[in-house]
Design a binder for these strands. Sequence first.
RNA 1: GCCCCCAUCGUCUAGCGGCCUAGGACGUGGCCCUCUCAAGGCCAAAACGGGGAUUCGAAUUCCCCUGGGGGCACCA
Length: 500
Amino acid sequence: MSEPLKPVRVRFAPSPTGRLHLGGGRTALYNYLLAKKTGGTFILRIEDTDQKRYIESAEQEIMDGLHWLGIDWDEGPDKPGEAGPYRQSQRKQIYLDYAEKLINQGDAFYCFCSPERLREMKENQQKRREFPHYDGHCRDIPVAEARARIAAGESYVIRFKTPKEGSTTVRDHLRGEITVENRTIDDYIIVKSDGWALYHLAAMVDDHLMNISHVIRGSEWIPTLPLHHMIIKAFGWEEPVWIHLSVFLKPSGKGKMSKRESADLIKDGYSIFLTDLKDLGYLPEAVTNWIALMGWSFDDHTEFFNMPDLIRDFSLEKLNPSPAAINFTKLDHFNGLHIRSLATDDFVSRIEPFFAQKGLNADKETLTQIAPIIQERIGGLDEAPEIAGFFFRETVVPEVEDLFQKGLDAKQCAEIAARSYETLAPLSEISPVVGEPEMRLLVEAMQLKAAQVFGVLRVAVTGQRVSPPLFESMEIIGKDIVLDRIKNAQKMLEAYAADH
RNA sequence: GCCCCCAUCGUCUAGCGGCCUAGGACGUGGCCCUCUCAAGGCCAAAACGGGGAUUCGAAUUCCCCUGGGGGCACCA
């Protein structure tokens, strides 16, 4: 164990432009884990400076998604703190003041180039096979002159003035030094013509003002990392520890999941969106465990983690910088593992909504009885009503074909039903203790296989070819109903036999 | 086109110069258990992208190539 880390201040800073997905969830998780592990502070900051892409419901969905995973924040839009407000849309003037400062010290400049000129410039650059970048047209306009043009009503943006010679080296905690030639760093716009700051300025200002010590974010920010470094240096601020996480690739490993592919996933019972996963029957514990292990590991054999384990065992040093393909079958595996690890009453309260959703009135008492026999045989919570719905239906209507058993005709199956009825009817109850021994004697007497006899009963009683263990199920259903259902199946089989 | 990042079984990964005839997990195949389905147990197939260099010794360090990924917006 290395020395304990000092309490960190970290943040998750999503933009409310869409739904929270796996990648965002993992970024939030790692930030949260580092904060909890070090006794630090986890901040939720909403980056909503782009009103054009703003989606009303997104902020709430992001918060719901995080809460569902078990992640909570110490400071955020709904949790005031000293460094607030935590919505960038409420901090517009702050960014403008800092942009002004950069202008005054010569690290930024006003740019009056029209979108048309910029577009033409880019087209020409592409024709010449150059990479698209600002050509410096307004770089050297004296500030006084620029301010006069602004006063006269000209539209403008503010660009950061990047050096054109030399190179910049920034250290990423995972990847080591990243060096780029300064000439490849554009004079990025940091304030738009509508007066709103862009990410590059706003995030750096906020990270400083909010005293962020470690920035854990996606690798899509690596290309602009030198820019961020320059902005921070221009202000003379201390730089946070940078940690750039790898991206999630689609299951094939070929590239990121497209919007279309994401939407199509739901057809297979999967989704990259957290709120969908909840509805699909996944446990938040399973999802958390799963995404935690995509890009982080503990040792060479431990894979089962709950949130407290993760907080205890998480460390930056075990992060993996390479991209990871999403593997939904592994999520299924973790879901099964976590479902089976649930205490009975917890399990019951988790499956309850899924019965309700199917219109089944499942009472807690019965659910508690069936919990032990279905808990280890469902892969997702959504499967509970599929496998155990018959407990809550007045009648079951088996397909007569399902009643047939291997090697037997309808008449023989009817006889199984009849003799089973005779065997069970006199008993005080039907259960693994009372009923099963008698039925096994019947199996012997009829010179059949247990699977054949029990198969008829299973379909008769549950209406399904696949069900929880027979005698346990019959005990819960109750003798009277069980006998009714057997009798019904017997009649179906006899009718069939008579017709064929 | 330019810049940057990454590189161990199909997938997620362990490995930070000798413990490696490369370990675990998912998935796959087989067997056991068994009233169906699961769960569980056992076994098996399956990887260090290629080429140089350093070293007594390289999956582990360096270089090149190749491959994959990300970025190049008045989005974040």
